Amino acid sequence: MEVSYKQYLISNDQSRIDVQTVIDYLARSYWADRRPVETIKQSIRGSLCYGVYFQDEMIGFARVVTDGATMFYLCDAFVLEDYRGQGISKKLVEAIANAPEFEWMTGVLGTRDAHGLYEQFGFARV
């Protein structure tokens, strides 16, 4: 799957994921700052991953864990600080929430600070 948005590309091509960018960002996040590097690498290998690219640089990421039938868990979603405020996060979540493989599934996620973004795509506060 590839979606163009302005000068950005959203892709679920696992081979394009810049693992070091994910490691570096998660190390400074509030939700994964204590997650070991090997755990991050394993989570990427075991998930459906989406990258956002500006030219050839990955500037955004999201990971989806799913049973393939009834639910998906959206996690580790981010856009690098220099690229925020341009609607990129919204387009990334929209691309995932509207993907045919997740169309009939219930989406789950946890956030401390981005409820408004996710509620636009059918996620509910619990």
Rank of each mutant, 00 (worst) to 15 (best):
E2H: 13
S4K: 12
S4P: 01
K6W: 10
K6P: 02
Q14T: 09
Q20S: 12
Y25S: 01
Y25T: 15
L26T: 08
L26H: 05
A27W: 07
R28Q: 11
A32M: 04
R34G: 12
E38V: 01
T39M: 05
I40R: 03
Q42K: 15
I44K: 11
R45N: 11
G46E: 12
S47Q: 07
S47P: 03
C49Y: 01
G51P: 04
Q55R: 15
Q55P: 00
Q55H: 13
D56V: 08
A62N: 08
A62P: 11
R63P: 03
V65M: 00
D67S: 02
G68I: 02
M71Y: 13
F72A: 02
F72K: 01
F72G: 02
Y73N: 12
Y73V: 08
D76W: 11
F78T: 06
V79C: 00
L80Y: 01
E81H: 14
R84I: 09
G85R: 12
G87D: 07
G87Y: 01
I88K: 10
K90E: 15
K90Y: 14
L92F: 04
L92A: 09
V93S: 08
V93A: 09
A95C: 15
I96W: 01
I96H: 03
A97I: 06
A97E: 04
A97G: 12
N98C: 07
N98Y: 14
A99Q: 07
A99H: 15
A99G: 13
A99Y: 06
A99E: 08
P100Q: 08
P100F: 05
E101F: 02
E101W: 02
E101G: 01
E103R: 14
W104G: 08
T106Y: 13
L109H: 09
L109R: 12
T111M: 03
T111K: 12
D113F: 05
H115F: 13
H115Q: 11
H115K: 09
H115T: 03
G116D: 14
L117T: 12
L117M: 04
L117A: 06
Y118I: 01
E119R: 14
G122E: 08
F123Y: 14
A124M: 13
R125H: 04
V126R: 14
